[in-house]
Amino acid sequence: MGASPTLISSVQRAFRLLEAASAHENGAPAKQLARETGLPLGTAYHLLRTLVHDGYLRKLDDGGFVLGDRLQSLHTGGRGQALLTRVRPVLSALRDELSSAAYLTFYEDGEIRVSEVVDGPRAPRVDLWVGFEDAGHATALGKAVLRELDDDSRKDYLSRHTLNDLTPHTVTTAVELIRRLENTPLAPAVTDLEEYALGTVCVAVPVYSGGTVGSLGVSMPRNRLDRFDEVRERLLPTAHRVTRSLSLTM
């Protein structure tokens, strides 16, 4: 118990130093930051070294301290969370209207990654038994992204990913996959007809967050195949709404 106040005080002092450093665009030396925060110089030096080591501050060649890359990463991540908060109600409405789990993915750092899943008791999500990074070729969500990529980006993705045979319906050759992407009858929507998991079908359409392509889709039992046209017509305007929301600046 005796150590807690010391730990809390250290955290508070570190935050005060970060706040002080943020006020100096061109950096400020340790003595100035200590003076502005009311900290003993030795304490300030110790905390500044720790903050630099962990990437929250960066020490310039002239001895001044500025905010580090770690804080920028936190800011970017927080912005991403805020943007997703904007679209969750849209995904929830889609789930309720179609009684289907709704998914949102993005193509980031050369991988197709699930950013959000909104499901419920009457709209369970598909069992993600194989990660989306290894199943882009077998999911509607992945194929919606691949269809939007330019030729070079698509070839790069396919060169780095094995087209694993996940079910008897999975397409496992790049030539056939590209042919189907370019000739999908529901374009720009694409489908997954039990290619990822037996008994489950999916429909997905592209979305964008600025220049980043992603996809919005829903999954449903195979016996609801006859609703694909209806689902597509609901997905397209929803995707436009999501793209608008994600493209707004914070």
Rank of each mutant, 00 (worst) to 15 (best):
L7I: 08
V11C: 04
L51D: 00
G38P: 08
L48Q: 03
F132T: 01
T43D: 05
L91K: 01
V126P: 04
G78A: 13
L104V: 11
V242K: 01
A144D: 03
R125I: 04
T191D: 02
R179S: 15
T249K: 08
S22V: 09
L246E: 01
L33K: 09
L186C: 07
E133V: 13
E133H: 06
L91S: 02
L17K: 00
L235T: 06
A3R: 04
A144Y: 07
Y157G: 05
V201F: 02
F65S: 00
V118G: 02
G214Y: 06
A101Y: 09
V171R: 14
S92I: 05
G38F: 02
R58F: 10
V231R: 00
A34M: 05
T6R: 13
R179I: 00
L146A: 02
L246W: 03
T173L: 13
T43V: 13
L216F: 08
G55V: 09
D151V: 08
V171G: 06
G64Y: 00
T139W: 05
S10W: 12
S215A: 15
D165M: 13
D127W: 12
T212L: 12
T212I: 15
T212D: 05
S209M: 09
I178P: 00
L158P: 01
L235V: 07
V205T: 14
Y107P: 09
L57K: 02
V231Y: 06
D229H: 04
Y107W: 15
E25M: 08
T191E: 00
V190Y: 00
L246I: 05
V11I: 15
R241A: 08
L248M: 09
L158T: 07
E25L: 09
L94H: 04
T191R: 10
G78Y: 15
L216D: 02
D134T: 07
E36T: 15
V205F: 12
Q32E: 14
S4E: 09
L94A: 11
P168E: 15
L235D: 05
D192A: 15
V118A: 04
T238K: 11
